[in-house]
Design a protein around this nucleic acid. Structure first.
Lengths: 77, 77
DNA sequence: GACAATTTGTCCGTATGTATT
DNA sequence: CAATACATACGGACAAATTGT
C-alpha cells in the first residue's frame, strides 16, 4: 500500500484546487459521485463512500474544504 | 448530538496533553484500552475502535500525536 | 531465521441522524 | 412532505510494523 486511497483522494482534491479547476467557493461533486469517479480513476470497483469521506473529513479539518450539511462540500476561501 | 464522540475524544486527549498529564513522548493507551475507557467515561457501551481512531487520526494529522505502527501512539514534541 | 502476539493503519458495508432544497 | 446530501457511528476484516520467544 504505497499511498492509501484516502490520501490519494486528498492529493487529487488539493491538486484540483491548486490548479484553479476548483476555485474557492466551488462546490465539489457529491460523495457518491466522487466515490464513482475514484472507483474508475483508481480502478478500485469497491471503493466506498467511507473512504471518500475519510479524505474529505481530513481536508475539512485542515481548513481546505468546508462541509455544509444538506448542501454540499465547498472549497474554502 | 451536541458534540460527537470523536470530538469529545479529541478534546479529552488535548486536555490531558495541555495539563501535562501526557507530556511529549508519552505513549497513549492502546486503541482498545481507550475504547474501553471512553465507553465508561461517556456511558456509551457500544463506542467502537473506529470512533477512537477517527479522533486519533485527526490529531495525528494535526501534528498533536504521532502514530507508530506496531508500537503505539505518542504525544508529539 | 521463523513464528506468534501485540498494536496501529486502512478499508468495507450498513444504519441512522441532521440540514437544505 | 419528499428528495438530496452531508455527518456520525457501529462492527468487522485484513494488512503492516514492532517486539519477543
Amino acid at each position: 500500500m504505497a499511498e492509501p486511497y484516502f490520501r490519494r483522494i486528498m492529493a487529487d482534491i488539493r491538486a484540483r484546487i491548486a490548479s484553479g479547476e476548483w476555485p474557492p467557493g466551488h462546490r465539489l461533486p457529491t460523495t457518491v459521485a466522487m466515490r464513482d469517479h475514484y472507483r474508475a480513476a483508481f480502478g478500485s470497483p469497491t471503493l466506498t463512500n467511507s473512504t471518500v469521506r475519510q479524505g474529505v473529513t481530513l481536508l475539512i479539518e485542515a481548513g481546505v474544504l468546508r462541509g455544509q450539511q444538506g448542501q454540499g462540500v465547498f472549497v474554502a476561501d
